[in-house]
Design a protein around this nucleic acid. Sequence first.
DNA 1: TCTGGGGTCCTAGGACCC
DNA 2: TCTGGGGTCCTAGGACCC
Length: 412
Amino acid sequence: MLIILVNIILVRVYNVDMSKVIVHIDLNAFFARCEEIKDPSLENKPVAIGHDGRGGIVSTCSYAARKHGVSSAMPMFKARQLCPNLIVIPGDYHYYSAMSKKFFNFVRRYTKLVEPASVDECFADFTDAVKGQSNVIVFFRKLQTDLFKETGLKCSIGVSTTRFLAKMASDYQKPMGLTIIRKRDIENILFPLKVDSMFGVGKRTAPRLKNVGIKTIGELYRKLEADDEEVKNICGKFFYTLKEWLEGKGSDEIEIEKWDPKSIGNSTTLPYDTDSAVEIKKHFLSLAKEVSERAQREDKLGHTIQIVVKDQTFKSFNKSTTLENPTNKWQVIYDYACSLYDKNFTNLTLRLVGITLQNLIDYTDMAVQMSLFDYSRHEEESKTKLLINELNRSLKKPLLKRASEVKKNGNR
DNA sequence: TCTGGGGTCCTAGGACCC
DNA sequence: TCTGGGGTCCTAGGACCC
């Protein structure tokens, strides 16, 4: 109580900065760097990781490749055009995942408040870790070189008071960057940047903002500040989030709980475009098995089965169905996937197919709910119930009403 | 030689229940 | 027979990120 009181007085009277130190650490060209570590002769050579076949794209590339204009998400054939001596490596994801773990464990030596954001980046709360440090820049530079010495990995570090600002800071300088953004630096550092470099503004929103004369983050902020209707229209609810972020009021919470998937999916680009149901169902079978296996590994069951297809023009469609009883059995997933396909997409020539299990629940939760009766029998029955529900819906009210009248009064 | 695959979150309309 | 409004769930589509 006394401590709280003292803190309040300190803040009020002396305006002591009580905010957190939130850090975003991003591994530079992670997959490519892993390959360089494994085979040092690749260093300073143009390296791209990715599939080289039909529809293959660059997943990550080294800085030497970037100098030639190669970038991630670029079609591989185009990358080869730009850089004829490009070294293409298919990728060893088990190895990358092991390196990723090394990285997270390294950061956890400084603070337990570490939140992985993907294989190659994390947010972390360094508030306690930097307490008593006379020079924060020296501190983080040492972290950076220590990581390099220990693992060979290179990283960029962003230091700020919110997740958004830390993320923007780590993006600011690469590779081996170190950027600190205090609230008062927002205007100097972020405002001159192009609007599409703002986290959350992607390739759809950026052009629409440019259409109304907004090219930089600073110009965007002026409109947010002015409560501009046009921009509100473009951004929707996100308008208010953007404003808060740029005022330094974003979230500074680090979630250390284990990642809990909300959906598990698998999709594949077909070896060639096809409208053959037989071919397509072969792919649904292997997708269903993959999804089922992963769901079982994660101890998850899904209530909703969704299929996604992409046609030759790259337009994608999805259809889903929700089951009364969740499943992770490949037979069930496959059956529903096929029936969704049969009902909706047999007339399309497809480029890609995928299955996603959604509305996940933990197997243990399910076991508790199901402990009172025979689960497998119930699961079989659910299919029938679903058909009945669907029939009811299509018959609509007049018939249902008639049926209930018959039931009540007898068929007259 | 156009354009992957893993996700998350948001929106908007319709069905259904009270 | 005709009527409302709120809440929730489901579905389809879209934007974004790595």
